[in-house]
Measured scan of single mutants.
Amino acid sequence: AVSDRLIGRKGVVMEAISPQNSALVKVDGETWRATSGTVLDVGEEVSVKAIEGVKLVVEKLE
């Protein structure tokens, strides 16, 4: 799938994300809905860990 190429890519949080709420991230110039197990604020850099349906699963870039 096209989205599989995004695993391992870096992105930027466009809307705050919490474990209860998905929000938008920008990866390679494209906007995607994403979820995370932690709270992520706007502007934080993230890494794509997986794809669940049409959502990216991201975590904060260390």
Score class of each variant (00 low, 15 high):
Leu6Lys: 03
Lys10Gly: 04
Val12Pro: 02
Gly53His: 03
Ser18Arg: 07
Leu56Pro: 02
Glu15Cys: 13
Leu56Met: 05
Glu45His: 12
Gly8Arg: 00
Met14Ser: 05
Pro19Thr: 11
Gly37Ile: 13
Lys49Asn: 05
Ser3Asn: 10
Trp32Leu: 10
Ile17Asn: 14
Val54Cys: 15
Trp32Asp: 09
Ser47Pro: 01
Gly37Arg: 10
Ser18Lys: 07
Val46Trp: 00
Val58Ile: 05
Ala16Met: 12
Lys55Cys: 15
Trp32Ile: 10
Gly29Cys: 11
Glu44Lys: 02
Gly8Asn: 05
Gly37Asp: 15
Leu61Glu: 06
Ser47Ile: 15
Arg9Tyr: 05
Ser47Val: 15
Gly53Thr: 03
Ile51Lys: 04
Val58Cys: 03
Val42Ile: 10
Val57Glu: 05
Asp4Thr: 11
Gly8Tyr: 00
Gly8Leu: 00
Gly37Asn: 14
Ser3Gln: 09
Gly53Pro: 02
Ala34Ile: 04
Glu45Trp: 15
Gly53Arg: 01
Thr38His: 11
Ile7Phe: 00
Leu56Val: 05
Val57Thr: 03
Glu45Tyr: 12
Glu59Asn: 04
Asp4Pro: 10
Ile7Asn: 02
Lys10Ala: 07
Glu52Leu: 11
Glu15Gln: 11
Glu52Gly: 04
Ile7Ser: 02
Glu30Gln: 09
Glu44Ile: 08
Arg33Trp: 15
Glu52Met: 11
Leu61Arg: 06
Asp41Thr: 14
Ala50His: 06
Ala1Thr: 12
Leu56Gly: 02
Arg5His: 10
Asp28Cys: 14
Lys26Asn: 10
Ala50Leu: 06
Arg9Asp: 02
Ala1Asp: 10
Leu24Asp: 04
Arg9Thr: 05
Thr38Gly: 10
Pro19Ile: 09
Asn21Gly: 14
Trp32Lys: 09
Leu56Ile: 09
Leu40Gly: 02
Val12Ser: 04
Ile17Ala: 15
Val12Asn: 03
Glu62Tyr: 11
Ile17Leu: 13
Val13Ala: 04
Ile51Asn: 03
Val39Phe: 14
Glu59Lys: 04
Ala23Val: 14
Gln20Arg: 10
Ala34Ser: 07
Leu6Ile: 08
Ala23Gly: 15
Ile17Arg: 13
Arg9Asn: 05
Ile7Trp: 00
Pro19Val: 09
Leu24His: 05
Ser3Met: 14
Ser36His: 04
Val46Pro: 01
Glu30Tyr: 06
Gly37Ala: 14
Thr38Asn: 09
Gln20Cys: 14
Pro19Gly: 14
Leu40Met: 07
Arg5Pro: 05
Glu15Phe: 05
Asp41His: 15
Leu61Asn: 07
Leu61Phe: 10
Thr38Val: 11
Arg33Ser: 14
Val39Tyr: 14
Asn21Asp: 08
Thr35Trp: 06
Gln20Asp: 13
Thr31Ser: 11
Gln20Gly: 15
Asp4Phe: 00
Ser47Phe: 15
Leu61Gly: 05
Asp41Ser: 14
Arg5Gly: 08
Ser22Val: 12
Ile7Asp: 03
Val2Glu: 09
Val2Tyr: 09
Gln20Ala: 11
Asp4Ala: 11
Val54Lys: 12
Val13Asp: 03
Ala34Trp: 00
Ala34Pro: 08
Val48His: 01
Ala23Thr: 08
Ile17Phe: 13
Val58Gln: 01
Arg9Pro: 02
Glu44Tyr: 06
